[in-house]
């Protein structure tokens, strides 16, 4: 450090400040929509040149213009797919995944123009069109991703109420333990309802369960209805025990709802990746087939 002049050192600390202050902007608004502007201008440029350039006999993938767009498109696809690696490899260096995502989103959308104009609207039942269809499906699933990323995080945060996933599960386990103890004095019929609620596997796995969300009828709600319906104000000597069970069942239902809502929101945020990623791999395969066949039948 002693070799640096004082001025350099000052500048160095200023730079550290700068780096840390990773500005508080979303991936969509990153650098004042820099990549949106780049992608927008690029798309506009491609559309205008497509209209102005006169290719004989008509626009197609095999013209010089078509090859240019095809090369750009293929390059873009490979680079866009590279995000999957980038995201999982936190190597040193001043890259920001947010910047990558921002570029990925906007350049990916511009691929609709680049890829489609590359075809010259010559679509048919062949491997070339397969690549285009796969590309469009990847982009559509990505557009869904942008929508949920922009709208759902807030719901996730509100539903969480500062609890972590483990805490939610623990809270449910605690309620269950208390419920088991509290249900001891109940009548056989009531106790059976509570036991049924406790025994039911509330998080039966499967895609449907994850998407079903909160407020579903299940053994807990049935027990709650059974024990509370019409009896809430009975002057029953056992009412103290019932009241406790009722309160705990209510708590349990609310806790299950919170967990289910959490699972549902997370599922909505993640499901598209199960389409986006495999389709991307299929697209890369189809793209390879497309390129190889084009040059093979030159």
């Amino acid at each position: 450090m002693a070799t640096l002049s004082p001025r350099d050192r000052d500048a160095g600390y200023a730079e550290i400040e700068q780096r840390r202050s990773a500005s508080h902007e979303s991936f969509l608004a990153h650098r004042a929509y820099f990549w949106a502007r780049v992608a927008g201008f690029a798309s506009l440029f491609v559309i205008i040149t497509y209209l102005l350039v006169d290719v004989e006999p008509r626009h197609n993938g095999g013209s010089w213009y078509g090859y240019t767009l095809g090369t750009i498109g293929a390059g873009l696809i490979v680079w866009l797919a590279w995000l999957g690696i980038r995201k999982r490899r936190p190597t040193p260096g001043s890259w920001s995944l947010k910047a990558w995502t921002s570029a990925h989103v906007y350049l990916g959308l511009s691929l609709v123009i680049v890829g489609t104009l590359h075809t010259g609207f010559q679509l048919g039942w062949n491997v070339h069109t397969l690549a285009w269809v796969l590309m469009m499906l990847v982009i559509i699933s990505g557009a869904y991703g942008i929508t949920v990323y922009a709208s759902l995080p807030q719901r996730l945060s509100e539903n969480r109420r500062e609890m972590t996933r483990e805490q939610m599960i623990e809270s449910l386990a605690t309620i269950d333990k208390q419920l088991e103890a509290a249900a001891q004095p109940l009548t056989r019929e009531d106790a059976d309802m509570v036991i049924a609620a406790l025994e039911q596997d509330v998080f039966a796995s499967g895609i449907r369960a994850r998407f079903a969300g909160a407020g579903r009828s299940d053994a807990t709600r049935r027990a709650l209805e059974h024990i509370s319906t019409g009896r809430a104000y009975d002057d029953d000597p056992d009412d103290l025990a019932q009241r406790k069970v009722r309160a705990l069942l209510g708590k349990r239902a609310a806790q299950i709802d919170q967990i289910r809502r959490q699972m549902q929101t997370k599922a909505l945020l993640e499901i598209w990746l199960y389409i986006h990623v495999p389709l991307t791999i299929a697209l890369l395969a189809a793209l390879t087939a497309h390129i190889v066949s084009v040059f093979y039948y030159w």
Partner: peptide, 21 residues
């Protein structure tokens, strides 16, 4: 000692993670 600074912020895809003074 890692070039580029805090990995948590660099690796956030949406810009949710920020470091502030």
């Amino acid at each position: 000692g890692i070039e580029g600074g805090p990995a948590c912020v660099r690796a956030c895809p949406t810009g949710a993670a920020i470091r502030v003074s």
